[in-house]
């Protein structure tokens, strides 16, 4: 009985560890309202495609806020470099929107999307 409890405890501990180490895929998905990263990415992309820079700027702010919410959730299971890469993409994207540079803005968005997919991979 004692050893059964011990093995059950070890199994539970490993299950918790494995969950923490692989929780990135789950926690990068929206868990409530207003934290859908991909939704805001698509909205910003649409705005930029039709040169709606004002709306793109508003949606960029939402995208940035969402990213700030997601990082603490996924930081235990993803590569720090991927997080940093998305940070850089978002910073560049903001400048592209301000300077209304469509080509570079779309480039940064696509790169950020790639890094997003690579999180927890």
């Amino acid at each position: 009985m004692k050893s059964l409890k011990y093995y059950a405890f070890v199994a539970l501990l490993f299950a918790v560890f494995i969950f923490i180490m692989n929780s990135g895929d789950l926690f990068k998905k929206p868990l409530g309202s207003g934290d859908d990263f991909m939704l805001y990415m698509n909205q910003v992309e649409e705005n930029i495609s039709v040169n709606e820079w004002q709306t793109a700027s508003i949606n960029y702010e939402k995208l940035h806020r969402t990213w700030k919410k997601i990082v603490p959730r996924i930081q235990y299971s993803v590569e720090k470099d991927e997080i940093n890469a998305i940070d850089v993409n978002l910073a560049r994207l903001e400048s592209c929107i301000t300077s209304q540079d469509k080509t570079l803005a779309l480039l940064e968005l696509n790169e950020a999307r790639e890094h997003w997919h690579d999180l927890n991979r």
């Binding site: 501990l13 490993f14 180490m21 990082v71 603490p72 930081q75 235990y76 720090k80 940093n84 940070d87």
Partner: peptide, 24 residues
């Protein structure tokens, strides 16, 4: 950069490493 807490991540990962190593 802004929300990543490196010390906290290292703390959690160290706990995982320590107990995993102990059990192994």
């Amino acid at each position: 950069m802004f929300a990543l807490n490196e010390a906290l991540v290292v703390l959690v990962r160290s706990i995982i490493a320590f107990f995993t190593l102990l059990i192994f």
